[in-house]
Simulated scan of single mutants.
Amino acid sequence: METIMNYLDNMFATLPKTKQMKAIKEDIFSNMEDKYNELKRSGKSENEAVGIVISEFGNIDELKREFDIDLNEEKEDLPSLTETEVNNYFKENKKNSMLIGAGVILCLLGVSLLILIPQLVSDGYITGFLDGGDRLLIPFFILIAIATGMFTYAGMRMGFGKYRSIDKRFELPLYLRKSIEIKNETFHPTYTLSVIVGVVLSILSPITLFIESTITGTASNYGVVFQLFIISIAVYIFVYFGWIKMSYDALLKIGRHSKINK
């Protein structure tokens, strides 16, 4: 085991002296020790067991690729996230995604009202205050104002919240990184399905125009309103599940959050 430990010390000698590297080293040594003892029990000699263990656990280049280590960077002890902070980060991002998704729905609903109210007035369903003129813009501006407030609040939560550093420089303990990777893999089918559903809804939304045309003989404004409603649902799906995916990417530093893309 002394040979294995010396090999591991030499392997990590040029790497940053951070808490993450220390945790990775301890984890690798534990796995190497288990493999060594297993080989010894199977009848392998000391030299055979050591040789197999060292060959199976890769080299320094593989380690640098896996954990995105740049030796040209200044060696520094970055802040390490805890499991509680990670869980709270996910909760905060889900709240932001719901705020932004709901804001988009209100915007599209405001546009829908600009189309729907004149049609209802024309058909005789509405008379009085909303019957004509600039008054038709009042519901539109109210909904836009509420949506803008939601966008602003969500933006301030992201830009000035206590988890804004997650978009900058941080470390993840090895066990926590592995846990997030597993959750990301588990979430991937759900994310894929959400994209498919959103795209299908967007493509099928014009069907409301044809249905309305079949019923009334003309492509009424009611069909446009239903189309915008379906599109708003699709956009909410894109925003909500896309934001969750972005949270995983930010924590794991992959996708547009990877070092090379930044």
Rank of each mutant, 00 (worst) to 15 (best):
1 M>E: 05
2 E>H: 07
3 T>G: 10
4 I>Y: 08
4 I>L: 08
7 Y>R: 06
9 D>V: 10
12 F>S: 00
13 A>G: 09
13 A>Q: 13
14 T>M: 12
16 P>D: 12
17 K>V: 03
19 K>V: 10
20 Q>P: 01
20 Q>S: 11
22 K>I: 00
25 K>A: 02
25 K>G: 05
26 E>D: 13
26 E>S: 11
28 I>V: 12
31 N>D: 13
35 K>S: 13
37 N>K: 14
37 N>P: 04
38 E>Y: 08
48 E>Y: 04
51 G>P: 05
54 I>A: 03
54 I>W: 02
54 I>S: 02
54 I>M: 06
55 S>W: 02
58 G>L: 07
59 N>K: 05
59 N>M: 00
59 N>C: 07
60 I>H: 05
61 D>H: 02
62 E>T: 02
74 E>G: 10
77 D>Q: 10
80 S>I: 13
81 L>Y: 13
81 L>M: 15
86 V>K: 00
86 V>F: 00
93 N>S: 12
95 K>F: 09
96 N>Y: 01
104 V>K: 06
104 V>F: 13
105 I>M: 13
106 L>C: 06
108 L>I: 01
115 I>T: 11
115 I>W: 12
116 L>P: 12
118 P>S: 04
122 S>E: 14
126 I>T: 02
127 T>L: 06
128 G>H: 07
128 G>Y: 01
128 G>N: 00
129 F>W: 04
129 F>Y: 09
129 F>K: 01
129 F>L: 11
132 G>R: 01
138 I>A: 05
139 P>E: 00
139 P>K: 00
140 F>M: 01
142 I>E: 01
143 L>P: 02
146 I>E: 03
150 M>N: 13
151 F>G: 01
152 T>F: 14
152 T>H: 02
153 Y>D: 07
156 M>I: 15
157 R>D: 10
158 M>I: 13
162 K>E: 01
163 Y>I: 02
166 I>G: 00
168 K>T: 08
168 K>R: 15
169 R>Y: 01
171 E>V: 02
172 L>M: 05
176 L>Q: 06
178 K>M: 06
179 S>K: 11
179 S>G: 10
182 I>T: 10
183 K>F: 05
184 N>P: 04
185 E>S: 04
186 T>N: 10
187 F>L: 02
187 F>H: 00
188 H>L: 15
198 G>K: 00
203 I>C: 07
205 S>E: 12
207 I>L: 14
211 I>W: 01
213 S>T: 15
218 T>R: 09
219 A>S: 15
224 V>S: 08
224 V>C: 08
225 V>P: 09
227 Q>G: 15
228 L>H: 04
229 F>A: 14
230 I>S: 05
231 I>P: 06
232 S>A: 10
234 A>W: 06
235 V>L: 14
238 F>W: 11
239 V>C: 11
243 W>A: 14
245 K>V: 06
248 Y>M: 05
253 K>Q: 02
254 I>P: 05
255 G>D: 07
255 G>T: 10
257 H>P: 09
259 K>Q: 12
259 K>C: 10
259 K>P: 09
261 N>F: 14
261 N>R: 15
261 N>H: 13
